[in-house]
Every structure is written in structure tokens, then in C-alpha cells.
């Protein structure tokens, strides 16, 4: 049971993600398509949570499902988009698409077949391992160039046996990945400027 349950949960959520993905393309009503994207994201969030990445999973639901897709739905409904009419799907188009997908899948099977699943090297995430890693995190080493303080929130909650994943993500982001983060700031600025200048109406 202990072995079966995680893999069962994985297949359920993976199936949900795939179903959502297929439905986005297959459904012709834009609102249904948007709802299918929501399904797909919920499946993804489930996968993240089964991997103990609770923060990423919750953010996936809060930001993507909750904020972005709801915004999408609003826009679709406000614009009152009709169901796509007209040109029925041509057989040639479907065949070409399917053959591309098939080629990709065969490639994937080849790659995965040549490399059987590796043995799980990591022991499950339990309190003992968290306490051990709390001590590792405070010491500076080659693998850990930015040690956390001994009385930081990360160490405290690891010693209590709960995973401080928000703090861990934040620590990584603002020490090691600080530089790409600032590049992203510039990227967001450019995107904002672009949206404004492309959608600007005539000033009265």
C-alpha cells in the first residue's frame, strides 16, 4: 500500500493533466478551452504536491488557476467570443499533426527505454533528514556557498520537522539566483511598456 499509493496518485494527476491538455485543443468553445486549461493546471499542481513541492503547487493554483485563467475567462466572456465556426478540420492537417506527435513520442520512448528508471537514492522526507539538512545548511561548503543563519526561520522549522519551502525558495532566489531575478525585473518592465504602448488609445 505504501508503495502503491504514490504511484496511483501520480497516474491520476498525470492523467488529469493530459486530459486537460487534449481538451484545450479539441474543444471549440473558447470558454470550455479555458476551463480545460484550468483542469490541466490543477493536475500539474497535484503533481507538484506529490513531489513535496507544496509551495510551487499552491502557487500554481493561486496564480495560474486563480488569477491568470480567471482573467482569461473574463476577457473571453467580455469579448463574447463565439464558438469557432467554419472550416472543419482537414484530414491532412490532423494526419500531419498526429505524425509529428508520433515522431516525438517514438523519440521519447527511445530515450526513456535506453535509460531505465534509476533507483530512488533519496530516503523519504522525514524529520530525521530535515534535522540533518538543517545542520548542513548552516555550514558553508562548495555545495552550499550561501549558508543560512543558525537562528533563521529555515533552521527553526526544519528542526521542528516541517518543510519551510517558502523560505527555502526565497533563500535560493535572493542569494544564488539574484542576478537572473533582476534580469527578470527588466523583462517585466519591458513587457509592461510594450503592453501599454501597443494598446494605447488616442489621447482625447
Amino acid at each position: 500500500m505504501n508503495q502503491l499509493l504514490p504511484s496511483l496518485v501520480f497516474w491520476i494527476f498525470a492523467g488529469l493533466t493530459l486530459l486537460g491538455g487534449i481538451a484545450v485543443v479539441a474543444l471549440r468553445n473558447p470558454v470550455s478551452s479555458a476551463m480545460a486549461v484550468v483542469t490541466c493546471f490543477i493536475g500539474l499542481a497535484g503533481l507538484f504536491i506529490t513531489l513535496s513541492a507544496f509551495f510551487v503547487g499552491i502557487i500554481q493554483i493561486l496564480v495560474y488557476t486563480g488569477a491568470i485563467m480567471v482573467l482569461f475567462l473574463f476577457i473571453i466572456m467580455l469579448l463574447d467570443l463565439k464558438v469557432e465556426k467554419g472550416n472543419a478540420r482537414s484530414l491532412a492537417g490532423i494526419a500531419a499533426g498526429l505524425s509529428l506527435v508520433a515522431a516525438f513520442v517514438i523519440q521519447l520512448i527511445g530515450v526513456l527505454g535506453a535509460n531505465p528508471d534509476m533507483e530512488m537514492s533519496d530516503a523519504p522526507l522525514n524529520k530525521q533528514r530535515m534535522v540533518e539538512s538543517a545542520q548542513l545548511l548552516t555550514k558553508e561548503s562548495d555545495d552550499n556557498p550561501h549558508p543560512v543563519g543558525a537562528d533563521s526561520a529555515i533552521v527553526k522549522s526544519l528542526k521542528e520537522g516541517s518543510l519551510p519551502d517558502v523560505h527555502l525558495v526565497g533563500h535560493k532566489l535572493f542569494t544564488e539566483y539574484n542576478f537572473p531575478l533582476q534580469m527578470l525585473g527588466v523583462l517585466l518592465l519591458v513587457a509592461t511598456v510594450g503592453v501599454v504602448s501597443l494598446s494605447k488609445k488616442k489621447s482625447a
Binding site: P180, M183, S197, L198
Partner: peptide, 23 residues
């Protein structure tokens, strides 16, 4: 690759705007 990807996206997203500028 992570840093390179962000820089590449900065270039590409700027170009999306510049290409469609004469809207």
C-alpha cells in the same frame, strides 16, 4: 542556461513589441 534563458527572453519579448509597433 538559466541566466542565458532569461536574457534570451528579454531580447525576444522586446522584439515582439518592436515588430508589431506599427499597429
Amino acid at each position: 542556461l538559466a541566466g542565458a534563458f532569461v536574457a534570451l527572453e528579454l531580447v525576444t519579448i522586446t522584439f515582439y513589441i518592436l515588430v508589431a509597433y506599427m499597429r
